[in-house]
Design a binder for these strands. Structure first.
Length: 513
RNA sequence: GCCCCCGUCGUCUAGCGGCCUAGGACGUCGCCCUCUCACGGCGGUAACGCCGGUUCAAAUCCGGUCGGGGGUACCA
């Protein structure tokens, strides 16, 4: 048994965690959760959060994806103390720039007894498995009980003689370095799951590099964690079963002087999509940056994502990142996978919206208004004034920043471009509706003062008292005529903001005059 | 096949042997507020996978079983 425990002289301020994504495709919400928990752990303990990039797979990495990762982390304000873009004492922080380090590590390992050369081809390995399987089945048919053969590499080249090696080399075969798993079992204390034990006979010897010399993930990640002095590794549960081989590797590192000890591990449960499938890049809700596009607040997304496997208290869902940092303990992380629920994410986001003062929401909504061409870029003075007055009306009725443009557009469009929603117009501006609009026009036209209160009084007198309409019936057509839609900010306030000229103009336009 | 992980309302979770006729949140349903929408308020709905065991007492501990997931690569 191997003990992976840290020596207990380690102080919380010395804790070093990392997140190490591969820059392939657009960043995933599962990655946000992993980043958040690592970050919260580091901040809670006063440790260090490292951001490293695992870009050894040249074929799949893109610079665009890398930019997306940086963009995402900055938007979320998950700041890192060391890593790409900011540097640090253990750089470089991109694996593609660390070839020398891996070559050196591999050379040391090869000089030890922990690594041997394997000359097998993949076909040979599977062929041997088929053979074992056939033999097992044959024996079973005859009633002989035995252990079913394991799939995967069978440690065939473990103890090759000098002659055999020479023969293979003479054949012109290439070889890969394989790590020799020790006998016995490996037990480690997973910080979220508790004690986990693997019998090493179930863990085949594994390749550390390709035949062409390129190091594999099995080597690079542990080497980086060792050389960057990472003390705790929190990652997805898909890596749980590769942990024993990494711990064994770390033991070899210690022997060859690459590490002082293995880090502690904690395996975070999956973030799932619909059904029982891990949220994949194919699912639209998987893409983290989409939430920014939709107008999520970073603190809203983060709060929701934190809830996927962690709870701050039994009766509380809404909290700030400061509060999370204060309360976060890795031991409290739940073991079972969580489904990502967009509806709840939106609700949590809405709660955060309500926590913000109007001025802040205004500030944050501007990029969305610009993107949709609702306000000028840069924002003109009149636009800024209008916004300042209009935002109190809409701030509490939107759940995402991205909902603001549609709600505000009617206040900003030039009259020439103002258009009615066809469906709403067809529904509400029928004969009866136009009568209402006519009555409204007449009532408002004579107004001496243009204020919310005056407007409301005039319309109430004309429509509710005069035409004896239900408020619902009365204001619907007017709303469509003035704002273009059935759904809008409060009508009387909107009219005041729009001004007498534009309001009356729109009413008249509907009446066809 | 073999190894490992996981199993409380539809969903996310609280629960660490008695505080549980299982709490909160989202969803959903009903009501109230209301010029639309949204907000807000009130109320309802709904769960310990199953079987054994330990115990005076089990959602909580143990065993089994079923179900789900991951691994078993010269992918990460």
């Amino acid at each position: 048994m191997t003990d992976s425990g840290l020596n207990n002289t380690l102080e919380p301020k010395d804790y070093r965690v990392r997140m190490a994504p591969s820059p392939t495709g657009s960043p995933h919400v599962g990655l946000v959760r992993t980043a958040l928990f690592n970050w919260a752990f580091a901040r809670h303990h006063g440790g260090t959060f490292v951001f490293r990039i695992e870009d050894t797979d040249k074929a799949r990495n893109t610079e665009e994806s890398y930019d997306g990762l940086i963009d995402l982390m900055r938007w979320l304000k998950l700041d890192w103390d060391e890593g790409v873009e900011v540097g640090g004492p253990y750089g470089p922080y991109r694996q593609s720039e660390r070839s020398d380090i891996y070559a050196d590590a591999l050379a040391r390992l090869r000089a030890s007894s922990h690594v041997y050369e394997c000359y097998c081809t993949g076909e040979e390995t599977t062929a041997r498995y088929e053979e074992r399987l056939a033999a097992y089945k044959a024996a079973k048919a005859e009633g002989i009980k035995g252990e079913a053969p394991a799939q995967g590499y069978d440690n065939y080249c473990r103890d090759l003689s000098e002659d055999q090696i020479k023969a293979y080399e003479a054949e012109g075969r290439t070889s890969v370095p394989r790590f020799r798993m020790p006998d016995g079992s490996i037990t480690f204390n997973d910080l979220v799951r508790g004690e986990v034990t693997f019998e090493t006979k179930h863990v085949p010897d594994y390749a550390l590099a390709r035949a062409n010399g390129d190091p594999l993930y099995t080597l690079t990640a542990p080497v980086d964690d060792a050389t960057m002095n990472i003390t705790h590794v929190f990652r997805g549960e898909d890596l749980l079963s590769s942990t024993p081989r990494q711990i064994a590797l770390f033991d070899a590192f210690v022997e060859v002087g690459l590490a002082e000890r293995a880090p502690e591990f904690g395996h975070l449960p999956y973030v799932m999509g619909q059904g029982n499938k891990k949220l994949s890049k194919r699912d639209p809700e998987a893409h983290a940056l989409k939430y920014r596009e939709a107008g999520f607040l970073p603190e809203g997304l983060l709060n929701y994502v934190a809830l996927l496997g962690w709870a701050i208290a039994a009766d509380r869902d809404i909290f700030t990142m400061e509060e999370m940092v204060e309360a976060f303990e890795i031991h409290d992380v739940v073991k079972n996978p969580a489904r990502f629920d967009v509806k709840k994410a939106e609700a949590i986001n809405a709660s955060h919206m309500r926590l913000l003062p109007v001025e802040e929401i205004t500030h944050r909504v501007i990029p969305y208004l610009k993107a949709d061409g609702v306000v000028s870029d840069p924002v003109s003075d009149p636009d800024a004034q209008m916004l300042e007055q209009a935002m109190p009306l809409v701030a509490e009725r939107i759940n995402k920043l991205g909902e603001a443009p549609d709600m505000l557009r009617f206040l900003f469009v030039p009259e020439a471009d103002f258009a009615l929603d066809e469906e709403d117009a067809a529904k509400l501006l029928d004969e009866a509706g136009l009568e209402v609009v006519q009555a409204s026009y007449d009532a408002l036209n004579g107004l001496s003062t243009w204020s919310t209160a005056e407007i409301q009084d005039a319309l109430t007198a004309a429509l509710i008292d005069g035409l004896e309409l239900k408020p619902r019936k009365a204001y619907g057509p007017v709303r469509v005529a003035v704002t273009g839609k059935r759904i809008s900010p409060p009508l009387f306030e909107s009219m005041e903001l729009l001004g007498r000229e534009r309001t009356l103009g729109r009413l008249k336009a509907v009446l066809g005059k």
